[in-house]
Design a protein around this nucleic acid. Structure first.
Length: 494
RNA sequence: GGCCCGUUCGUCUAUCGGUUAGGACGUUAGGUUUUCAUCCUAGAAAGAGGGGUUCGACUCCCCUACGGGCUACCA
């Protein structure tokens, strides 16, 4: 049978790392098994809906390169792909639920419920609407069918709750955690249909997964506690259950809790794939390559036996196997995320790197020709960790140093600097740049001085500090007159 | 509080009863380089604790501890 998986985000705000990881694992599993990757928008809660987020989800997946095969934008034969448009489907199944006594009407007011909750929490620490106390609430189990009907007809507000039978061992299967058992007494008569007539997650999710012929449900571990409720629902309807895979959570670097937006803000790493409005930058804006980002988050909770952990999306698909998914949560490590990106940048082909350089420094083309840009690209590639570094790394080719690094200045000031600069200027002026290096070495040999002093002086003049790519190569790119100008600038400065 | 899930270097992980417990990030020390970065070499660094089972347990079982998740008419 052809595998069908789904990623089912709720459009209540930007997708965060955990969501992207869930989407990625669904994508990987689908591609690995030549199956179909479905995107379903879970917007049953219209109150929490944030208008821009649906588009954001699409844009994020597109950037990451893991777009769905079926979705609102690309409907297959299992639509609609937005839960808010599936109301008529739910109605049908809700009717069955009521008729076959899998659920019942509950008329309890929000005030009564919250009063009962407060009381119970004070006494036992927890409130549950279940087999023990459902007899004391205002629901259809406690009044006749006629009366129930009368109340409904008269417009009374009600929810529909799952009728959980007591003392049943509910057995669920999870692909990575294996059998999960729980006694039904621990469960709650969950609200399945809200007072506004829309289903809650539990119901909509089970119905949709069944109707959309989903074969494998891959979602975050936070859903594990509600798996027994879903199991009960599948069993009630007599539907074949999909395989369930609950992914370990991505934890904060501190290990305290799920990775959160606030934590990212505080520690200076993004938690979103792309920018959310003007409020937050994403991995894209921070300068991550989409494949590198995917490569890192794939290895949060999954590992491969491949000798090289730097992989393209294709390679990850090839290697992917649910058997290698970890059980425990994985802490997020921004340093490693950056390192993975750096590795991907290092492996970029010459043309790819040049394209990125032009994208991040379009003004380079005003000053340099194709060959020179190619040379610049070659010089800075190994120094790029994040794509955003490109801007700064290119600065030295475009303009003279705006300021000189204090330490660097101190160092060269120990030399006979004024004379040295004049000598260097002569060297630069009198030689072909191609043979400048040889000329410098020859000069040093004749004068019996170290090359270090000259190179450092040259570097401070050209770059403003004592770090950067091969200074001779830099000079070849910026040319003789720029170099001479910058040397003169340094001479005036000291 | 209750229920569920988990626990190997600081972090991500390998190990599927017998290993000097391996790799990667980070870190430390060297080396290469005109500098920095890259790169190379080497080092430090782990089975939560306690009981079993077994000739033998990181690996299987139980308890404890710790961590996480859930506990809404949110998903």
């Amino acid at each position: 049978m052809k595998e069908r998986v789904r990623f089912a985000p709720s459009p209540t705000g930007p997708l965060h790392i955990g969501g992207v990881r869930t989407a990625l694992f669904n994508y990987l599993y689908a591609k690995k098994n030549k199956g179909t990757f479905v995107l379903r928008i879970e917007d049953t809660d219209q109150k929490r809906k944030v208008e821009e987020s649906e588009e954001y989800i699409f844009e994020s997946l597109k950037w990451a390169g893991i777009s769905p095969d079926e979705s609102v934008k690309k409907p297959g034969s299992f639509g609609p792909y937005r839960q808010s448009e599936r109301q008529s489907i739910y109605k049908k199944f809700i009717k069955v639920l009521l008729e076959k006594k899998g659920a019942y009407y509950a008329f309890d007011s929000a005030e009564n419920l919250s009063a009962a909750r407060t009381l119970a929490e004070k006494e036992t620490g927890a409130f549950k609407y279940n087999y023990l106390n459902r007899g004391s609430f205002d629901n259809s189990l406690n009044c006749s069918e006629e009366e129930t009907l009368k109340r409904i007809l008269s417009g009374a507000s009600y929810t529909i709750r799952l009728w959980v039978l007591p003392d049943v061992e509910v057995i669920s299967e999870d692909e990575i955690r294996k059998t999960v058992r729980v006694n039904s007494n621990e469960l709650e008569d969950k609200v399945l249909v809200k007072a506004d007539g829309t289903p809650t997650y539990h119901l909509a999710n089970v119905i949709d997964d069944h109707c959309m012929k989903i074969t494998t449900v891959i979602r975050g571990e936070e859903w594990l506690p509600s798996l027994p409720i879903h199991t009960l629902l599948y069993e009630f309807y007599g539907w074949e259950k999909p395989k369930f895979v609950h992914l370990p959570l991505i934890l904060n670097p501190s290990g305290k809790g799920k990775l959160s937006k606030r934590d990212g803000d505080k520690n200076g790493y993004p938690v979103f794939p792309i920018a959310w409005k003007k409020e937050f930058d994403g991995y894209k804006e921070k300068g991550f390559l989409p494949e590198a980002h995917l490569n890192y988050i794939a290895q949060l909770g999954w590992s491969t036996k491949a000798e090289d952990e730097i992989m393209s999306l294709r390679e990850i698909v090839f290697e992917f196997d649910l058997k290698d998914v970890q059980k425990g949560g994985a802490r997020f490590d921004y340093d490693k995320a950056k390192w993975v990106n750096q590795q991907h940048v290092q492996r970029l082909k010459q043309k790819e790197m040049e394209a990125l350089i032009k994208e991040h420094r379009p003004d380079l083309t005003n000053t340099f020709d194709v060959g020179e840009i190619s040379k610049i690209s070659e010089l800075i590639q190994e120094r790029v960790v994040l794509l955003n570094d490109i801007h700064g790394l290119c600065a030295l080719f475009l303009e003279a140093p705006a300021a000189y690094d204090e330490k660097a200045l101190q160092k060269i000031l120990k030399l006979d600097i004024s004379n040295l600069i004049s000598e260097i200027k002569t060297l630069v002026d009198k030689n072909q740049l191609e043979s400048l290096k040889d000329a410098v070495f020859l000069f040093c040999k004749e004068k019996e001085i170290g090359v270090g002093g000259i190179m450092q002086t040259l570097r401070v003049a050209v770059v403003g500090s004592l770090s950067g790519p091969d200074i001779i190569e830099v000079i070849k790119v910026i040319g003789k007159s720029s170099t001479l100008d910058r040397l003169e600038m340094l001479k005036k400065h000291i």
